[in-house]
Amino acid sequence: MAAEELKTGPLEYRTQEGQMGIMGFWIFLGAEVVLFSTLFATYAVLFGRTADAPHPGELFEPGIVLIMTFLLLTSSFTCGLAIHEMRRGSVKGLTIWMAITLALGLGFLGFEIYEFVHYAHEGATIQSSAFWSAFFILAGTHGLHVTLGIGWAILLLIQIKQRGLTNVTSRKFFIISLYWHFLDVIWIFIFTSVYLIGMVI
């Protein structure tokens, strides 16, 4: 691995620091998969233990969950386009697609907050039963990740406006794109194993 700067290839991979940063983030994502797996396991074990609170089948609505899924899927797509524009050297394209990604992410968060408030009104709160504790912790941890991702991306957008595309800023954007796609991966599993299975059983 060359210590000096490479002259070809994507900016974010040209220095060893960039390559190591990206590799380190993949290790972090591996740890995140395991973190979420413990929450999924807790949810699966406590499934059905709703005590006096409503059953998930009564509260889960396909409409709002599908809207949330499509919002997040589309945001993952636009985030991919943002990185594509970044590799074409276009700061403008990167900024526009990233802003669309963040708007979609905010839309997702809005629906999730609405959903949680709605459940709480129906008597399903984090204290109401083991099942709903597990549900809110699992979905809430994902929502917290989305919130952090939005704040992080806003800071990066400010930074790229000040500094332009360099080895460092493009590495940072590449890493947040990995994070954002990863959030979509986790959501696919929440959508499938929490909402769809909750509506089937």
Partner: peptide, 14 residues
């Protein structure tokens, strides 16, 4: 490797 082992561990844990 990270993703494969992460998901393998996730499967074992769940």
């Amino acid at each position: 490797n990270m993703m494969f082992h992460g998901f393998a561990l996730a499967g074992i844990i769940v």
